[in-house]
Nucleic acid binder design. Sequence first.
DNA 1: ATTAGCACTCGATAGTTACGAGTGCTAACA
DNA 2: TGTTAGCACTCGTAACTATCGAGTGCTAAT
Lengths: 342, 342
Amino acid sequence: MLTKRQMIILDRLIRLYTSTSLPIGSKTLLEESEIDASSATIRNELNYLERLGFIQKTHSSSGRIPSIKGYRFYIDHLVRPQEVTPDKLDVISQMLGNHVEEMDDIMHQSAKLLSELTNYTAIVLGPKADDTRLTGFRLVALNDHHVMAIIQTDYGTIENKVFKLPKSIRESDLIKVANIFNHHLVGLPLMEVTRKLQRDIPLLLRKYASNAIDMFINLETIFDESTEERYHISGKLNLLDFTENMDRQKLKSLYSLLDNSVGLTHLIEKMNQDFDVRIGDEINNDLFTEFSLVTTTYNVSKYGKGVIAILGPTSMAYDETFGVLDVFRKQLTHTLLNYYLD
Amino acid sequence: MLTKRQMIILDRLIRLYTSTSLPIGSKTLLEESEIDASSATIRNELNYLERLGFIQKTHSSSGRIPSIKGYRFYIDHLVRPQEVTPDKLDVISQMLGNHVEEMDDIMHQSAKLLSELTNYTAIVLGPKADDTRLTGFRLVALNDHHVMAIIQTDYGTIENKVFKLPKSIRESDLIKVANIFNHHLVGLPLMEVTRKLQRDIPLLLRKYASNAIDMFINLETIFDESTEERYHISGKLNLLDFTENMDRQKLKSLYSLLDNSVGLTHLIEKMNQDFDVRIGDEINNDLFTEFSLVTTTYNVSKYGKGVIAILGPTSMAYDETFGVLDVFRKQLTHTLLNYYLD
DNA sequence: ATTAGCACTCGATAGTTACGAGTGCTAACA
DNA sequence: TGTTAGCACTCGTAACTATCGAGTGCTAAT
């Protein structure tokens, strides 16, 4: 167990390191913080903290930098979410109170705002309920040879896809197809929709609208898309601010990963706590040894849970980030509840 | 005027520099190419070429690298588009022969393929005809409080936007609005549509569907979007391969610019020739001193002209790029003609 | 006009030195 | 027993120097 003084020293060291990115020595610690002891005493304590693995040297006579274990302790015991300044608060509530047209817009704007407020990279996942249901299906004939299919779910997603009509199809076929889909799919959970699309629907189509078989494959894809996880990422360029030492090849891999929905959701999904921080190696990916990932959930009651994540350097300003995230998730929950109830 | 030999030397020097990125000396030139002269003679010629401004030294006793003027000459007189290998040709025609569902998809896939084939960054602008007309307008009620507006133009763009209905609106109002739009706007050139939207339409709405005034503002935005230039960019990460020496701040500005549609179209628009290359400072933007921008147009007869651009280093493999671009534009033209006629 | 030969330039690399921030340890002190 | 002043020691950083060699321009011979 650490003594009070040791904790203070660790706390100050991490804060100083966060703001300077330089190894911190006993003298700096003495001058820049209000620790009531001499530099020699501080040195002794630093030595002790190092032996416990909370801090480390970059070379034998350097100052100390926090280790993963040190950050872990800091996050679990020392950090205190910083209160969000009124002007930032204003920006958040203004943005979230604003236009509430499409679900995707809210998510997109949220990611953007979060990245701007933190100067890190923000990732936002829309709310996801296990029992999301299909609430609407439309086929809109745009002209002689183009149709738009539109599907809706009860948590606000609206997908659309335009596709070309096979020549053989007539308007009456479209109506038949729309009817079949509306009768047999609308109202069901997406899980079941997917299953029926593979089994029952082809049979029904063959029976009642055999002309339309050709367009079925096109229709299937739009349903696939609707069950895909939707993520919104913003502030990717901010990574350039704290990857000075990363070589170009690695930087490229990193950005590729962030552009790839599979890699990204994989990165985020494994979290169930309310607030979760994974530091460096804890992320379990070589590319992220110098990064920290702060994730939190927002819960829109029966409409499901969503995830917000901030990706920044291990030496992130955790207190600020925590503060912003906490305020933001509450506001977002509020906005979404309004969106659903309205 | 340059002699035959001087041109050969310039040509070889540029090719060698392109593949090594190292200053090229007389000895390398002697060994690596089939110039029938001694290194001393080559040195004399290099000296001459330097005095004319085609090449330059990095320091007083270094080899030579091409100058902007050198590249200019190379592109205008020496480069010969390299024939595209059969397998690349296959990939292109396969991709373009494939799905032709939505205009945007074609553009998007084209940009992606071009960036992969060249290993540079590709930018594609959809065809743009001055007299594009509005060919369709739909209002689709999704549920009690959401409507999707869909507009189409005769060159294939389909835009849609979902918005919330003001409470006062009924289904009958929607039909009225749709009728008004269809009667007074569909069939007109977009230019005129924009004008009417500001003048005539508000009056008509007030007269025949006064309830719907509130939703008009939402409808207007979708028309705005349809007149906006649509661009597709791909392979942005490839820039990292040849910006080793660029500092992070500049890199950030560069990527910001590429994410910004205004900056980007501004970058491309000013071209009217068939093939156009702007090198380094010719691009007229401090960020691009180390880049070259190769642009070309494709012409889909009356359906308008589009632009394809490749952004790469000044020391780009021009012959290859030219070859790929030339093949691609032809194939794309062909595909689009099919798309429109079909 | 071409070319062999040569002195010269200058960036890159490696080795040397000086500096100083920071350490651990020892011994004295409260 | 915990704290602290003092000091020798470590090692990265920066500045300077020496060496090397690729490449040049010039001269004189062909």
